Amino acid sequence: MKLAPHLHRLGNDIVASYLVDAPEGVTLIDAGMPGHWRDLQEEMTSLGRPLSDIKGLILTHGDSDHIGFAERLRSEYGVPVYVHAADAERARTG
């Protein structure tokens, strides 16, 4: 869902992530829940951009409702994932 120029929301009313669409690439803020993967695919398709245009994922913290599809993006598409050091272990282990 487009919120503003270059800013899109994925997920539902309770758990969300945000997509920042810039000419040089897409940055995601949080990765919602694993089931939001389809939302990401649909939003990228609506923008006419492949998943390979995602240049980074910023996790605001390591809670399970924020790390959702992070590992999939990292392992399948090589997207770098950024998280504060204090939350890194929690983000890795869920």
Rank of each mutant, 00 (worst) to 15 (best):
M1L: 02
K2A: 15
K2W: 07
L3K: 11
A4D: 13
P5N: 14
H6P: 00
H6W: 09
L10E: 05
G11V: 01
G11D: 03
N12W: 14
D13P: 00
D13K: 10
Y18I: 02
L19D: 05
A22W: 11
P23D: 13
P23K: 09
E24N: 05
G25C: 01
G25P: 02
G25M: 05
G25F: 07
V26S: 05
L28V: 03
I29H: 13
D30K: 03
A31Y: 06
A31S: 09
A31Q: 06
A31W: 04
M33A: 05
P34V: 02
P34G: 02
W37D: 11
R38L: 13
Q41N: 03
Q41I: 04
E42W: 03
E42A: 08
E43L: 02
M44F: 06
M44W: 07
T45D: 15
S46V: 00
G48A: 04
R49S: 07
L51Y: 12
L51T: 07
L51R: 09
L51E: 12
L51N: 11
S52Y: 01
D53E: 12
I54D: 14
G56F: 01
I58M: 14
L59A: 11
L59R: 10
L59C: 10
T60L: 13
H61I: 03
H61A: 12
G62M: 06
G62Q: 04
D63C: 11
S64E: 09
D65V: 03
D65Q: 03
H66D: 04
G68D: 11
G68E: 08
F69Y: 15
F69V: 01
A70H: 03
A70F: 05
R72V: 04
L73N: 11
S75W: 05
E76L: 06
E76A: 12
G78K: 07
V79N: 09
P80W: 14
V81D: 10
V81Q: 10
V81E: 09
Y82T: 12
Y82D: 11
H84L: 14
A85I: 01
A88E: 15
E89Q: 14
G94V: 04
